[in-house]
Simulated assay, not measured.
Amino acid sequence: MPSLRTLLAVPVSLTLLALAQAATTKLPTSAPAPAAASPSPAPSTDTLLRLLTTQGHAPAAALLTREEPNTGTEPAPVTTHYAQAGQGIARADHFRAGSITKTFIATVVLQLAAEHRLSLDDTVDQHLPGLVRGAGNDGRTMTLRALLTHTSGLYDFTVDTKGVVPLSPLQAVRIALTHPPTDLGRYHYSNTDYVLLGMVIRQVTGRSYATEAERRIIAPLGLTGTSFPGSRTSLPSPHGRAYAADGTDVTELDPRVAGAAGELVSTLADLDRFYAALLGGELLPPRRLREMLDTRTAHGLYGMGLFPQKLSCGITVWGHNGRITGSYVRTAATVDGRRVLTFRVNTTAIADPDLEPALLAAEFCPRTS
């Protein structure tokens, strides 16, 4: 005897069969199958650049790419692409590069290590005896490697100064030393680390970090638009205007608000050239470049003056960003330095944080047709 479940299933099955037959008669046998929706094309770098001025609320934005094709043993011509959006930015403009300064400082320190004039395992106290003491901070146990990788635990002095108070290096360090260390041995980004490295460079060489960077990097690479302005508040010509988040004109700025952590002035072309040369092996021996790219000390987050970013397509690019009042800059490159992108806006920050990774992906991720 059929079960109750079977009896109930019969009319349901008949109903479904009838609906299926009705549906079949409504469509002619010759009707084409609906076309699959094609995915919308990924936005280009130029499109995303324009969004920096609309969604990102920047007065103006610009980018410059540099690519050296890998054609084997024969040198290939370098190709570039420039784009700008909004008003007030030009290709040759000088601008404040903020924390991109850190890549220059780290390069000088690693060059000195390659020359055996210091070791990355030296303690801070070996070069600046007695300076780092207070609130639990101790330069006798803090290494140069910890400064380079932001694992020293030192407090970031710019949290107190908001990045607008000009200071001597010693004043900046003393502010940091009024605070206890944060996450000793863990990655904790601190501008104080690189102010101290600038002081170490002077102690080891007898010359300022600016002088050493100029003779070791800027002059050899022909970076004619790059400089360390010291206390000079004006930008070299040509330049546009720079604006704070509230629209205030902050083109005139004392670079001592950042010092060795963010003093640099540069151009789009110079930053592309610098990162191409650095990652291409022109500035450091292979062993030291590998150390620079080694992120294990900082738990995968930072190397030495460089950090990796894994893009949505799985490709990892290397570089740094720079933020200082009135200017935000980002440079990223392939690990061999053959392809580089630098973009900038003439304000302190980008309102939409998703635009930066999207812009990098548009440049470095393979396009599918």
Rank of each mutant, 00 (worst) to 15 (best):
M304Y: 04
T178W: 08
R241P: 04
G198T: 05
S208L: 06
T295D: 11
R186C: 04
R287G: 05
S227V: 11
M304G: 02
V164F: 07
A260T: 01
P238N: 14
I175C: 03
R232H: 12
E291S: 07
S237Y: 07
L253K: 03
T248P: 08
P285T: 12
S237V: 11
T211I: 09
T295F: 11
F307E: 11
P166Y: 08
I218F: 06
L278P: 04
E212M: 13
Y209E: 03
M199Y: 07
P285H: 07
L264C: 09
P180E: 10
E214I: 08
Y209G: 01
E263M: 15
Y189P: 01
L268T: 02
D272I: 06
L268H: 01
D270Q: 04
H188E: 15
F307G: 08
R296K: 15
Y187P: 00
V250H: 03
P181V: 06
T161G: 05
V165E: 03
T182N: 11
G222N: 12
L235I: 09
L264I: 14
R202I: 00
L301F: 11
A219W: 10
M304D: 02
L221Y: 13
Y194M: 02
L278V: 00
V164T: 15
S237T: 14
T192N: 02
D272T: 15
R241E: 12
P229L: 12
T248C: 10
T161A: 08
T182Y: 10
A176V: 03
R256L: 05
E214H: 11
